[in-house]
């Protein structure tokens, strides 16, 4: 469990690392929205090109890139195959019962591009932004909502703490799985019901210990003077520079293209 996990912050000195976290958060948001809009694929392709550029700027080598795509390779492949087979239209290839249509092929490519954008937006964001920066950015961007009674600062802390404990809980789940296996839990059973029960035997202990953990963390935070107040200094620490203007400029072009 000591390897580098997907979604983990990696310290670096790249263009993306130096960007203001607010810019990155806004950028991700805009990219995802414009990519998911229907009937507008040009914005999607621009986003893909921009993201590839970001990956290059981030200093991610081709080998690492392949490693990142690995976990979603089947998802990409299957969506592409199903989209291209099951959507009817002008036939390109016709093999017995299977036929691939032009429209299907197009939609397949669009879907892959969309998944790519969603996946790499979040990966690049968490790779180049520390959780505290992310928290500050969320706090700063959603600050107006405090006026209408939504506790954004608490929400931001919540995200920060959950990001911290994802690897811890995964590790714990693995330990409990091993413990239950040692007691003969039928994880490899062919019967679905038995398998389901075995999964429950892990889920419930993990949940119970997470609740205990939550109580411990609350006490630890409280004894370090956490009161849930808004921290103005944290927001002031963010700085908006020239590179942020360039980045926002690039992203806004994709909005313009969608609107035109």
């Amino acid at each position: 469990m000591n390897g580098l996990k997907i979604g983990q912050y990696v310290r670096g000195n790249s263009f993306l690392h130096k960007l203001d976290p607010r810019t990155k958060l806004l950028g991700c948001f805009v990219m995802i929205i414009t990519s998911l809009l229907k009937n507008n694929t040009s914005a999607l392709y621009i986003n893909v090109v921009l993201l590839l550029l970001c990956i290059l700027l981030c200093g991610i080598k081709f080998k690492q890139f392949v490693k990142m795509v690995r976990p979603i390779r089947y998802m990409l492949l299957l969506t592409f195959i199903f989209q291209s087979i099951f959507i009817s239209g002008e036939k390109l290839i016709d093999l017995w019962v299977i036929s691939v249509s032009r429209e299907g092929l197009h939609i397949g490519i669009v879907t892959i591009a969309r998944i790519f954008v969603l996946y790499f937006c979040s990966i690049l964001l968490t790779r180049t932004t520390t959780p505290a920066q992310l928290t500050a950015a969320i706090e700063a961007l959603l600050f107006p909502m405090v006026r209408i009674g939504i506790p954004i600062n608490k929400f931001a802390t919540l995200i920060n703490v959950s990001l911290r404990f994802i690897p811890v809980i995964i590790e714990e789940a693995e330990t409990i799985t091993c413990a239950q296996k040692a007691r003969g839990a039928p994880f490899n059973s062919k019967s679905l019901i038995k398998k389901f029960k075995a999964i429950f035997s892990v889920l419930i202990p993990v949940l119970a210990s997470s609740l205990q953990r939550a109580a411990d963390i609350a006490i630890a935070m409280e004894s370090r003077c956490y009161t849930g107040e808004i921290n103005h200094n944290r927001i002031k620490g963010l700085s908006f520079g020239k590179s942020d203007i360039i980045a926002l400029g690039l992203i806004s072009t994709s909005i313009v293209i969608v609107l035109v």
Partner: peptide, 21 residues
């Protein structure tokens, strides 16, 4: 494990003084 709130060492140290504003 249960008293470390941040994912980065530096930010963990800053948590207390940040709460003191």
């Amino acid at each position: 494990e249960n008293q470390i709130i941040s994912s980065i060492v530096e930010e963990e140290l800053a948590f207390g003084p940040q709460n003191l504003n």
